[in-house]
């Protein structure tokens, strides 16, 4: 099955075939060099894929570590969130380092040739960062955390040290689609947090989340989405908005909504 893997692919290569191959080509009219060239090109791709696979597997594991730490936010009062922000520092640092590695390796090849290999894991990394950012982790300077921040795609590029939404050159970057997918995941995470905040006796954050997811939902409605996975997932946003509204409704029904906040 081995077809001359060491040969570099070059357009003039089939003029310098071993003599037997030349004879074969003349006898059959099917020049094996044509197929060998392509095999060499395909094998190069395989080598790159193998290199990327390890990095991607590492990223997936590190994403899990981040979400492991951040998921404690669901059972932690706001006052204690700084501990979680602190605990997330290291796993997030690992994610950033791995994304840099991925960026370097992946930039050797056309971005869209392989991006489906890592798109899910990059989204995972971004989801973690978005939730961490919402909890107030981005540029946190001590003291009480300030929840409710939305990291823009540019913020994320800065955190991960990668270009975002590239158009003019072919390199690794964080794509718009990946960012939007991760925003949808953030809404899902926050919907869960709205309920869990109530359980913790925190009646303020559900209102904050309510406004936040409404604003994001309104944002998604501005987009003209075609019938793709982004469309299908964003269709679910309205149910999340309703879920959060239900929480706020339950609170207001029982006069639990803090007075200073305006009711919805």
């Amino acid at each position: 099955m081995n077809i001359d893997l060491d040969h570099p692919p070059s357009s003039s290569r089939h003029y310098h075939l071993p003599n037997t191959a030349q004879k074969l080509s003349k006898m059959t009219g099917v020049n094996p060099a044509i197929f060998q060239d392509l095999q060499a090109r395909v094998d190069e791709d395989t080598a790159v894929r193998d290199e990327l696979k390890d990095i991607i597997a590492a990223l997936e594991k590190q994403n899990r570590n981040v979400s492991f730490v951040l998921s404690r936010a669901h059972s932690t009062p706001v006052a204690n969130l700084p501990e979680i922000i602190e605990a997330a520092k290291e796993p997030i640092g690992n994610v950033v380092a791995t994304v840099s590695k991925l960026s370097e390796a992946a930039s050797k090849m056309p971005y869209y040739k392989f991006n489906n290999m890592w798109s899910r894991q990059v989204q995972g990394a971004v989801e973690g960062l978005l939730f961490w950012g919402w909890l107030g982790g981005y540029k946190y300077e001590g003291g009480q955390v300030k929840c409710g921040q939305l990291l823009t795609i540019e913020d994320l590029g800065e955190i991960l040290h990668v270009p975002v939404n590239l158009k003019d050159r072919d390199e690794f970057h964080l794509s718009l689609e990946e960012y939007l997918q991760s925003l949808i995941s953030l809404v899902e995470e926050l919907t869960r947090l709205a309920r869990n905040a109530v359980t913790l006796g925190d009646y303020e954050r559900p209102l904050l989340i309510n406004q936040f997811v409404k604003d994001l939902h309104a944002g998604f409605q501005i987009l003209n989405l075609k019938n793709d996975s982004l469309r299908r997932r964003s269709d679910g946003l309205k149910y999340r908005v309703k879920d959060v509204e239900d929480v706020v409704y339950d609170l207001s029904l029982r006069n639990l909504v803090p007075k200073k906040e305006e009711q919805t």
Partner: peptide, 18 residues
């Protein structure tokens, strides 16, 4: 609904997706 605070950002996204 009143324009959300992310409207401007999403307007830009819309253009690119289109």
């Amino acid at each position: 609904q009143p324009p959300s605070r992310f409207s401007a950002m999403f307007e830009g996204f819309r253009k690119e997706l289109d």
